[in-house]
Design a protein around this nucleic acid. Structure first.
Length: 509
RNA sequence: GGUCCGUUCGUCUAGCCAGGUCAGGACGCCAGGUUUUCAUCCUGGUAACACGGGUUCGAAUCCCGUACGGACUACCA
């Protein structure tokens, strides 16, 4: 296989919002293509008309746009193998199913859903495993058991039928998976899967194999849930006489606690998003949170996701998407499921937040201020942001750390008052106010110098004075360097807050 | 039930393919340091090869079995 010609695809079903596991699958496909200069294709697999959800396709597109994952070909941009939506390729599949019938690898089956249901129940009561295989099909109505004339008659009369794959009775299928190595399955435990449905649409199995072949896909990279159908797919390629692509089945994303794969319920229960973007169900109107709306940076989200099942083999953890592609290889993808850790996700966002420049962060913070009714300019916000960014994981957390830069405290933390507003505080703050009123220029550095000198002369305790002062400016015992705060809010505001505080807190006896 | 896949600190993982390291890193947690406060940050600590056999001078690493977990088992993808 020539590395230059690598072609991979992500093939979601538009049945709802894209799960973060799906995003990771797409990401790994993207990284492989990017690394080898190959092509990455987006194909929509909407062969089940009953599960179609309006808006899902747009959601998928918007999610990847947000993540920074770009496609070379796809339903939204076209390409040399268009169309890329299976419902638009509908006419194509029948002929391939017919080819399989002609060469003896498939057959018409006329069983109704009811008939199959009773058959399954019957097997169950007899404690037997129901497999629609050679033994079973011999006793049913299909083109293998009935005469050609009878079958033709049924077909012409419009009797509903499906086309099933004729699974070999007993044959060892040896397969190679890039991540798992050799996998061997005997066809006797496999069933005659439906390839073509009675509604005129192919099933996933047929459409997927046909399209992957037609679109010249070289690597099929998908979730572990597809591993059991790999033998069927291999057999289909063989039946068609086509080259078989390389397969790689990715490990599952597991819930943070307990057992099983990560689901929407876990996010609701534990308080984190499972989808990249917020999603409103068109039927129920129910809204589900997304990473974007929860304040995650797309690059942090992608970085976190990539490390759930892959690592570069050294100790680096922070990668932009380009260097990630450079370092990526399927051989370094793990076999076992990766449990999602919301704490680590937050940590990634913290790292990325520190890497953003103050201008970007200020722009991101501005809408939160506007929502609070704060009118201010970007330069001021930028200064604020530079002081508080290292204390937060998310932009929205900045308000909590910076509100006092924009408005005087509307109260004083009770525990802090109890601890730091002492008998001497009132007089000290009164003195401090007089001193600060005369301090010129009112820069952080100069103010600090003046205040410290005064404290030394009066032999006031650093802790006592500074904490009382902080209480008056901030309303609580938190925040950045106090003199930086004073400088930024300005002399007038500083004096006013001291005055207000003296009035509010009063003398303590 | 059947088939397949998996199993290293609480979590993500390195090491396994080409047996020999005090089993390494990160998140979390704990402690100490820095600091006028909180947070950040720095330093240190905590903690793992699922179990049982075998092969070997020597096994996390190779083989077999057991247990546990997961996925799949539709005219869904």
């Amino acid at each position: 296989m020539s590395e230059q010609n690598i072609r991979v695809r992500f093939a979601p079903s538009p049945t709802g919002p894209l799960h973060m596991g799906g995003v990771r699958t797409a990401l790994y496909n993207y990284l492989l293509a990017k690394k080898h200069g190959g092509k990455f294709i987006l194909r929509i697999e909407d062969t089940d008309q009953t599960r179609f959800v309006p808006g899902a396709e747009d959601y998928i597109l918007e999610s990847f746009k947000w993540c920074g994952i770009e496609f070379d070909e796809g339903v939204h941009i076209g390409g040399p193998f268009a169309p890329y939506r299976q419902s638009d390729r509908k006419e194509l599949y029948k002929q391939y199913a017919d080819d399989l019938i002609k060469n003896g690898h498939a057959y018409y089956a006329f069983d109704t859903a009811d008939e199959l249901d009773t058959l399954r129940q019957q097997f169950e009561t007899e404690k037997k495993t129901f497999i629609y295989n050679a033994e079973v099909r011999a006793g049913l109505n299909n083109s293998l058991t009935k005469s050609e004339a009878e079958v033709r008659g049924w077909l012409e009369s419009g009797k509903p039928y499906v086309i099933r794959f004729k699974m070999p009775e007993s044959e060892e299928i040896k397969m190679q998976d890039i991540i798992r190595g050799e996998v061997v399955v005997n066809t006797k435990v496999l069933d005659d899967k439906v390839l073509f449905k009675s509604d005129g649409m192919p099933t996933y199995h047929l459409a997927n194999v046909v399209d992957d072949h037609l679109m010249e896909i070289t690597h099929v990279i998908r979730g572990e849930e597809w591993l059991p159908s790999m033998p069927l797919h291999i057999l289909l390629y063989r039946a068609f006489g086509w080259d078989i692509p390389a397969f790689a089945h990715l490990p599952l994303l597991l819930k943070p606690d307990g057992k099983g794969k990560l689901s929407k319920r876990d996010g609701d229960r534990l308080g984190f998003p499972v989808f990249p973007l917020e999603w409103t169900d068109p039927k129920s109107g129910e809204t589900t949170r997304g990473y974007r709306e929860d304040g995650y940076f797309p690059d942090a989200f992608i970085n976190m996701l990539a490390f759930l099942g892959w690592n570069p083999g050294d100790e680096r953890e922070l990668f932009d998407i380009d260097s990630m592609a450079e370092a990526f290889s399927l051989e370094r993808v793990n076999k076992s499921g990766a449990r999602f850790d919301p704490d680590k996700a937050r940590w990634f966002n913290h790292q990325y937040l520190q890497m953003k420049n103050d201008r970007e962060l200020a722009e991101a913070f501005l809408p939160f201020l506007q929502k609070k009714g704060i009118i201010t300019d970007l330069d001021y916000v930028q200064k604020v942001v530079s002081m508080v960014k290292e204390r937060v994981n998310f932009v929205y957390e900045m308000w909590d750390q910076a509100s006092f830069f924009f408005q005087a405290p509307d109260g004083y933390d009770e525990a802090a008052v109890k601890k730091r507003w002492k008998q001497s505080s009132y007089n000290q703050m009164e003195e401090l106010k007089e001193i600060l009123a005369q301090t010129e220029p009112f820069t952080s550095e100069h103010t600090e110098e003046v205040v410290k000198q005064w404290m030394e002369e009066k032999e006031y305790g650093m802790g006592a004075v500074m904490n009382a002062f902080r209480l008056l400016l901030v309303g609580a015992l938190k925040g950045p360097h106090l003199f930086d705060i004073a400088e930024l809010i300005g002399q007038e505001e500083t004096l006013m807050r001291i005055q207000t505080g003296l009035h509010e807190l009063g003398r303590k006896d």
